[in-house]
Design a protein around this nucleic acid. Sequence first.
DNA 1: TCGGTTACGCGAATCGGTTCGACCGCGAAC
DNA 2: GTTCGCGGTCGAACCGATTCGCGTAACCGA
Lengths: 350, 350
Amino acid sequence: MNIGEIARRAGVSRSTVSYSLSGKRPVAPTTRKRIQDVIDELGYRPNATARALKEGRTRTIGLVIPPAGNRLNHMQLDFVASVVDAAARADLDVLLSPSGGDHDKSFERLISERRVDGVILMEIRVEDARVGRLQQARLPFVGIGHTAGDEEMCWIDVDYAGLIRHTVRHLADLGHRKVALVNRSPELVAAGYGPALRAAEGFAAATAERGVTGIDVPCGDDARSGQDLLAALLDAHPDLTALTTINEAALPGIQRALDDAGLVVPQDFSVTGVAATLWAEDFRPPLTAADVPALDMGDKAVALLVERIASPSTPPRHILLAPPVSLRSSTGAAPAHRAAPAEKAAATRS
Amino acid sequence: MNIGEIARRAGVSRSTVSYSLSGKRPVAPTTRKRIQDVIDELGYRPNATARALKEGRTRTIGLVIPPAGNRLNHMQLDFVASVVDAAARADLDVLLSPSGGDHDKSFERLISERRVDGVILMEIRVEDARVGRLQQARLPFVGIGHTAGDEEMCWIDVDYAGLIRHTVRHLADLGHRKVALVNRSPELVAAGYGPALRAAEGFAAATAERGVTGIDVPCGDDARSGQDLLAALLDAHPDLTALTTINEAALPGIQRALDDAGLVVPQDFSVTGVAATLWAEDFRPPLTAADVPALDMGDKAVALLVERIASPSTPPRHILLAPPVSLRSSTGAAPAHRAAPAEKAAATRS
DNA sequence: TCGGTTACGCGAATCGGTTCGACCGCGAAC
DNA sequence: GTTCGCGGTCGAACCGATTCGCGTAACCGA
């Protein structure tokens, strides 16, 4: 069932059917009605492939996600969902491509076979070969995260440096003198993952500025790692009274380690950071944190990409988001003295 | 840069380039080398759209996920990841379509514009209009979950009835006399979501069989709902000593409600159910549960779909998975007497 | 009455591949 | 010495849409 079949049944030429559908040239009302009746009867919709070939665009965008091994965190998941949603509203389909390494089969297919009109690139690293590949292919794209040196591309990012700086100041104002940054996984930090690097930057700047002692440690992106890490940290630093983090997935583990040590938040220990709203609200007590507007970012990313596809030659735009810190109840004045973890733990175990 | 350009530069016809690439007809080694050199130099890859038009297949499959509003749980997320992965291995791309209602724009586009060669349909309901739509369009598809009446389709499902029955027997064997089933959200239950219905079936059968009292309650798919529900449940049923669940997302909330009530697992209360391995291991103590092999299911779904695309007329196959129950440490002998929640909670609050 | 719009519709070209039929030259077989 | 088969190549048709150029008829004002 194709446009020729419709034309035949309506007794007109194929071009007339096409014009009737697109409205790009006038078609007599009676003819149009006849055509529409046939279309309605057969439930015809023009073949997307043929249309794409002729028009030179696929009405599809690629969404490059971290590879399946690395589990997506809630922020990323919300982002994916909102991209798919926003794309649907713009009558675009979304092609998924898991890609981590530089030479990924599925990524390469997307680009060189021209399956998509544009790409949204998640989890950009500071040195990212995919950016060069996209530029070389002249394919419009929007990065989630930015690379320091490159102003030639469109991107949207969260101002991790600024937000972490903000949280550290907040803790310093509450009297904390020794503060930890629970960063993303060692692998991501080593790979030069932007948010991890910039969080560290902001952390270093703010601790120096306020004269507090800062401990910057990477942590696997899961509850277990968070628990082990914090237990070790509490053990090694009896005077540690607060932490800030960008590692959402470690939060449940952090909570457990604090419980195990018999520390009450925020009386004995303060916790803050940057996280998706859901995670922040799931913490107990609710986390004082900068809420990453992941849903909003998806909308913005699609809008930016659509704009870029329409006019690829305009100078690239950048959006740096700095959501406000929601004061919930996981931070408080520094305790005069934090009981040694061992003795507290013993007390609760009994 | 297209096949004509390659042909021109290599001094051959377009068909020769095509045959050289596909190997469907012999090409002289010298010619082949000349062509390959030009291709390597320009980095040519045949345009996917044009190829799809001629071949009549897009090498793309559609993955229909629950709409963005309903947050995906870990099981579903693992499943999506493994589908994308398995598809990539089979040189297929994955087009995402969020669809809940019956008349979804993006779903309809996928089907009627023939953007995909086949579809994987997640979260099937007992009455699901999308199934009929796919059959009518003669588009191969595999359902995740099955509809009772319809044996005409391919599906993969987890044997929720059997697994829940199994967990209830386990609890009964440990001496529990009153057991709750924490089911999925009221909306899903009302919509006739298969796993929810079948879990209830299995629960009813097993409680009857073992003569234990069963309480079957729906619960929102999030931590907060789990917490509220269980608190209410403990309050209303002082003799409730165990629960089983298929609602992963509620687990963290269940954990909190138990903590708040001062109940220790498994001494005071037993918890079990069906969950993704990650959630089961994240519970404290680790959850005795049937581990849903979501990653495996993705592989199997893609394999089944590929098979069905290749030969659409063979009778549909069904796969019912019944993963073994991993005995971890969240279930134990029923306590002689469970302290009233109020008095225990008061004790911990002090 | 005549030139000039405008409305309407058709045929053909085009997008970038794949594939069928045909052709040519050469060596083997009868 | 013709014929057959086969390796190697080319031209043309085709997939299903869009769109350009052109023809025709009706209608307008001068």
